[in-house]
Amino acid sequence: MEILKEISGYLQQGRAKIVKELVQQALDQGVPAEDILREGLLDGMNIVGEKFKNNEIFVPEVLVAARAMNMGAQILKPHLAAAGVEAHGKVCIGTVKGDLHDIGKNLVKMMLEGKGLEVVDLGTDVSPETFVQTAIEQNCRVICCSALLTTTMPVMGDVVKAAEAAGIRDKVKIMVGGAPLTEEFCRQIGADAYTPDAASAADKALEFCMEA
């Protein structure tokens, strides 16, 4: 449908105001909210994620695209709820205890939302207990831990241990990411997945949620 292509296209350009108007226009034309979400907003955000992964676009472009998606999603929200459309799954995300850097975490959050996942953003300086408690209370399928500092990376291991201690390790997947991290570190601490960039993180989280 032409209007959905337009929504996707303007979202990729980060034109938030136009995206918001087009989403409303599509609703007024009787296009189902779920189609607008999946073929308009999420389609656009998927293309943004791929381009980001391939170094065709960079952080500023992703930020403005995500802002456009959020503005469109705000309009859609009540219509999606009324139609009983549910997210593909629920994920909680945060930057680990002792670390206040949040750009990487925020980028992953945007990409997760772009995959149609519901995200509980715990912010920065998040303790292992908070990650685990949130996963239990909010029924999250995935915990995403971010760290920029080599000094805070070990906290991710504490998140894995806290999930084991709480008896939820077999119910929740733990993903790790951030500039100093490696696949090897992920294996050492017993986490389930390391991804090198925000778009791959969202792909992996979606995969985990679809497995559930």
Binding site: P60, L63, R67, I103
Partner: peptide
């Protein structure tokens, strides 16, 4: 703030 600054670079 870096995030806001990044947005301003484009927007």
């Amino acid at each position: 703030g870096v995030e806001q600054f990044m947005i301003e670079l484009i927007d």
